[in-house]
C-alpha cells in the first residue's frame, strides 16, 4: 500500500464515521425522541393550570420565602443555564465558615438544627431534592407561616417522599418543587 493510498483510506474512514456518529446518529435520535418522548426530551417541564412552564420536575429552584420548603444551598443560586459546585475541599476554612453561618441562620429560622443536606451545596447546584428529615425540620416554620396544621404538612411530605429505586438503589428524597406546588394547591 502506498503512503498516499494509506492517507486516503484514513481520511475516508474518518469522514464516513464523522457523518454517521456525529450527525446521522444524534439527529435521527432527536427525531425519534421528539415523537416518542416529547416531554422528557424537552426537559420534563412542569406547567401551571394556565399552561405556563413553571419549572422542570428534575431541576431544583430557589425558594426563599418562609411559606415554602427550601432546597439545598446552591453555589450558583439555582441558575440552570450554568451548573456548578462549590468545589471546596473538606479542610477548606471557607467551607466550614459557610456551614457554621448557614447552620446558625437555619436554626434561628426553623427553631431546630438543620440536617446536613440543608447546609451543604449539591454537586450540580440544581439538586431538586432534600432528604425527608430535611423537610421535617422545616415543618413547624412553614405551618406557622401558612397557618396550617403541622400534621397536614407531615402527611404531604410523606406523600411526596420517593423511596430508593426498587427499595435498594440511591436514597429516599423529597422533590422540593413538587412539594411546594402541592402546598400551594392545599385548600385552606
Amino acid at each position: 500500500m502506498s503512503t498516499l493510498r494509506e492517507i486516503g483510506t484514513g481520511i475516508r474512514v474518518s469522514v464516513f464515521f464523522w457523518i454517521a456518529c456525529g450527525l446521522v446518529y444524534p439527529l435521527i435520535f432527536t427525531g425519534f425522541a421528539q415523537i416518542a418522548f416529547p416531554n422528557q426530551a424537552n426537559g420534563s417541564l412542569v406547567r401551571n393550570t394556565q399552561g405556563e412552564a413553571i419549572g422542570s420536575h428534575l431541576i431544583g429552584q430557589k425558594f426563599t420565602s418562609e411559606r415554602y420548603f427550601q432546597g439545598r444551598p446552591s453555589s450558583i443560586d439555582y441558575k440552570a443555564e450554568a451548573s456548578g459546585a462549590s468545589q471546596l475541599a473538606p479542610t477548606n476554612k471557607t467551607l466550614i465558615e459557610r456551614v457554621k453561618t448557614d447552620t446558625a441562620s437555619l436554626t434561628k429560622l426553623n427553631g431546630t438544627k438543620p440536617t446536613i443536606d440543608l447546609v451543604t451545596t449539591s454537586g450540580s447546584g440544581l439538586d431538586p431534592d432534600i432528604t425527608p428529615s430535611g423537610a421535617a425540620v422545616q415543618v413547624e416554620r412553614v405551618a406557622k407561616a401558612r397557618g396550617l396544621d403541622p400534621e397536614t404538612l407531615r402527611k404531604l411530605i410523606a406523600e411526596h417522599t420517593e423511596g430508593r429505586f426498587l427499595g435498594i438503589f440511591g436514597e429516599a428524597r423529597v422533590n422540593v418543587l413538587a412539594l411546594n406546588l402541592a402546598l400551594d394547591g392545599l385548600k385552606k
Partner: peptide
C-alpha cells in the same frame, strides 16, 4: 464517616454531603 469538622458544627454523625446529590447519597 464524613467530615468531622462539619459534624461537630451540626452536633451529629453524618456522611459527607458537600458536592453530592440527595438522590445518590454517599454510597452511590
Amino acid at each position: 464517616n464524613g467530615n468531622p469538622t462539619i459534624n461537630s458544627v451540626l452536633g451529629s454523625a453524618n456522611p459527607n454531603f458537600e458536592g453530592q446529590e440527595v438522590r445518590f447519597g454517599w454510597s452511590e
